[in-house]
Structure formats: structure tokens, C-alpha cells
Design a protein around this nucleic acid. Structure first.
Lengths: 126, 126
DNA sequence: ACTATACGTAGGAAATTTCCTACATATCAA
DNA sequence: TTGATATGTAGGAAATTTCCTACGTATAGT
């Protein structure tokens, strides 16, 4: 449910690959997914459970099969978490500006901020 | 080094909070970071090591202190991994179209694709 | 009613992660 | 030099993750 579950689910390469398979090839029964992995079928089933608990896949019962489909919505939380770091990429890596420069044109007020490093004062926080 | 390390590093709420602190407040010595956590100082030090191994922080020795600073570049890999899922958000969630619609105007050829679900054919893939 | 298929779950071994308390090292301050 | 400060590392306990082999359940086909 929480965003913690989503981050934790993405920590496994097997689970990321499962998501990619569902993205590229669409909803599939568990067994057809499992044969792609060098791993027992029940183990893949357990990975699917982790993804389901994170809200990243949903299952639909089709006769004796269970079709799993991608639920990409929770990935938005990851993207949102990532957003505040983007300005850092622009500071450090000026070389790949293509996409970011396009966004610049759209949202020009992202310029002119202070570098949060190089700071040294007391931290009255917390 | 690999992108696996980055995903794994982000799986811990403690490490995500460390990154956020460095983003919001700038580079800091390990001890000042540690007191923010309800956890022993050496444990925070170990979390910093995981972040360092993932390339997400770098350290600079300042006398007897070690200042840790954010290295946001590896987060780009996460964002890139996320990108192909974005069209799914637009299918399912039409409500938040603001940003995505702006990107639409820039990159109009993202329209008109088939739903990867609702497929049923054989999978010659491996 | 049978048998085969598709799948999840139980139970457990092995590996990994997370956290702790010492402890060692390096620097600063007197 | 001596003592305090800042920090990483060693070693280990506890929790969690990952994977396996049975095994149980439900559906489909005959």
C-alpha cells in the first residue's frame, strides 16, 4: 500500500523484469511468465505476490489460469519522489540537455537557485 | 555500479531519507546526519556506505569529518527505467494530464498505440 | 467420476540485510 | 603528549528475503 512497498518491490531484478514483460507483452497467465525465468514456478509466483501487494500488478481469474496485468499507477509515486532531484542533474551534467532543455522552454522558472551544497551554517532542523 | 545497486539502495526508507536530507540541506558530515535518526551512528554509517557503493553519495574528507554530498546522477537510471511505463499512466489516469499533455505538444508521435493488454496470441519470445 | 493442468501455499534451508556494541584510527585542541 | 571528537570497521544476533520441494485446491477435458 505505502510507497515503501513499491520501492521494495522494485529492488529485485526478477520483479523488474516481470513488470517489463507485462509492459511489453501484455497480461499473461502466471505459468507463461514463469517459464521465462531460470527459477522454479512457485518462486515466480511469490514474486508476483510481492508485486501484487505493492499494487504493481493485478490478477484476473480466467478459468484455471490467473492473468496478471501491469498496474503502473504506483510507479507515479517513484517518479514524484524522483522529481526534486532533477535540478541536480542539470547542475552536474550539462551534456545531455536535450530533454531537459525542452522542459526548460516549457517551465523557464526552474533557473536561478542556490547550490544546496557549499553550505556550512548551523542546522536548527528537527 | 550497476543499476541494480541503485534500486537496492533506494529500497530502504532510511537511505531515501538520507538522500532527501542531503538534497534539502546540502553536504553534511556523517555525525550530523546520524543524529537525525533513531538509530545508532555506526548503523547510519553503514547506510551511507550502501549509498556510496551505489554512487548516490560521495564523501569529502574535511579534517576529522567526512562530508557526504548527494550524487544524483544514478537516479537518472531510475527515471529512464520508469519512462516506458508512463504511457500506461495516461491510459489509466486521464485526470492528471497537465505535464504529460505539455510533453504531448513537444513530442506528438507518442499517440496511437495498441493496448499491450488484451493480447492473447502465442509468444515466440524467450 | 477420473485425470491432467494451472496455480498458490506450507515449511524450511541458505543467503542477505539490518542493527547493535565494542574497538581501532585519525584529527583537533590544550 | 594527552585527551576529546569524528568516524569507519569487526563480529555477531535477529529479522527478512529468496529460493526450493512437497502438497492442496480448483478448473478443464474425457
Amino acid at each position: 500500500m505505502t510507497s515503501d512497498h513499491v520501492f521494495a518491490a522494485l529492488a529485485s531484478p526478477v520483479r523488474r523484469r516481470l513488470l517489463r514483460l507485462l509492459l511489453d507483452e501484455g497480461a499473461q497467465p502466471a505459468g507463461r511468465l514463469a517459464v521465462r525465468f531460470d527459477m522454479s514456478r512457485p518462486s515466480v509466483s511469490e514474486h508476483l505476490k510481492v508485486l501484487k501487494d505493492a499494487g504493481l500488478v493485478a490478477e484476473t481469474r480466467m478459468g484455471r489460469e490467473r492473468h496478471y496485468r501491469l498496474e503502473a499507477a504506483p510507479l507515479m509515486e517513484i517518479r514524484e519522489w524522483l522529481t526534486p532531484y532533477e535540478r541536480f542533474w542539470r547542475e552536474r551534467l550539462s551534456a545531455l540537455g536535450t530533454l531537459l532543455d525542452e522542459m526548460d522552454d516549457l517551465d523557464p522558472d526552474r533557473d536561478g537557485f542556490e547550490d544546496p551544497n557549499e553550505r556550512n551554517g548551523e542546522q536548527p532542523h528537527d
